[in-house]
Design a protein around this nucleic acid. Structure first.
Lengths: 242, 242
DNA sequence: CAGGATTTGTGCGTATGTATA
DNA sequence: ATATACATACGCACAAATCCT
């Protein structure tokens, strides 16, 4: 039944790395659910009913249960004991917080890698940028979100700082979820221009410039927020006027 | 069998708040295990055997299994499919990363709260500081570690930024684990003096001063690291030019 | 390099606690 | 206040993979 675990050890030299680590049901279910949630196919606030998901996937409740808890621990679902597990419904305040913490993290990241950037760093960044632009022009919303995350992950991956990267991944999942919540339409040429500026600053020579771009870039994201209705925005304006 | 569920509803007015939120077995087991790990009573690298823990606690394997996965998702244990879950054995590189990311986070935190600090902020900070000093003087290692975490959590809690606080909690658990790994002895008067300086800067009027103190404070922690033997530091110098 | 012991991964039935309509 | 749906928890069985001798 598990077709992914055929590990043939041939005598030839194997250029393959990352040797197909055995994926458990738990991991597969969690990944599938996470994808469904982050792309908005499972609406925020939905209850994740174990039995329903189990029969839908054709697995046992136990596996589903564990997968669901993985989502809870990752912050994209929440659990009320004996009541159920529900997809997080991010409010405006949390979105602001996500952006502000991300800003601090990203400024720090660029500061760290700045003198260590190589030619490869730039070419890879440009490649991801091209993918992102293509996705935006195709008006493929899901693809664009994924591409943007991949684009912005690059400096973190390049930092060689595992803790920093993990922290970013934690944040990025919830940021991605916030995209699904606020139905921000695929932004057009303006946004492409914005990404161009970001990229230019990131591979340029002036550290303070990318810091400024980060602030601008995130400010744009926050400006798109107020379109949301006040679904749970009790503390929406607890932030000081800047 | 469950003796804690006798819920007598008397007619008298109940001054009790925080009405005993239902704690599941999963949560209790996870907390107990986490405490055992973070205080070093379960050594880093140990395998967490489900059946053994289950019979030790007198619960089913399923509950233990879920609790263990909570630890994995929190980053203080790691799982290899079909091989087992093991308490993380933090290496030197990861410790450095933890400290550096924490530094960035903490500088940002103070920057955010700086103009919003109230009198209450100061008094609470001083109270936690006093607790920490007392613990150090008592030479109670476990108590001191807990007190230090509580002390340093205060600015994050005061920030009213839930995302920032969660991120800190994630980091702090692993930092606490690193304390258990590196058998840093309870430091003496020097360290108390260090904490005094930190507190003074934190409640003072010069933002750049607390930024400097953060760097110094973390530098002290990193300086204590090289004492570690290479107990499981296989990848310790994977950063250096080979 | 076998092969058995150990441990995890998964499934299923069942009983009970809890929330909610 | 009752009923129902669901989560929580237990126990057992077996498959699958790893570890160890």
């Amino acid at each position: 039944m598990n077709k992914t675990t055929n590990r043939r050890k041939s005598a030839a030299a194997l250029p393959e790395f990352d040797a197909v680590l055995p994926r458990t049901r738990r991991a597969q279910i969690a990944e599938t659910l996470r994808d469904l949630i982050l792309t908005g196919k499972i609406a925020p606030g939905s209850q994740l009913v174990e039995q329903a998901i189990a029969s839908r996937f054709g697995v046992s409740r136990g596996s589903v249960r564990e997968a669901i808890w993985e989502l809870v621990d990752q912050g994209i679902a929440t659990n009320r004991p004996y009541a159920g597990t529900f997809v997080i419904d991010i409010d405006v305040k949390t979105m602001r917080e996500l952006y502000s913490v991300r800003g601090a993290l990203e400024r720090y990241c660029f500061t760290e890698i700045w003198p260590r950037r190589t030619r490869e760093f730039r070419t890879e960044f440009e490649a991801r940028h091209a993918t992102l632009v293509a996705a935006i022009q195709k008006q493929d919303r899901a693809e664009a979100i994924k591409a943007e995350m991949h684009f912005h992950s690059h400096p973190y991956e390049f930092s060689q700082n595992g803790v920093l990267l993990e922290t970013w991944h934690q944040l990025s999942k919830r940021i991605q979820l916030s995209f699904a919540v606020s139905q921000v339409h695929v932004r057009g040429e303006d946004f492409i221009e914005e990404c161009n500026r970001y990229l230019a600053a990131a591979i340029g020579d002036d550290l303070s410039m990318i810091h400024g771009e980060i602030d601008r870039h995130l400010q744009l994201g926050m400006d798109a927020i107020p379109h949301m209705d006040e679904t749970g925005a009790e503390h929406a304006d607890a932030v000081a006027p800047k």
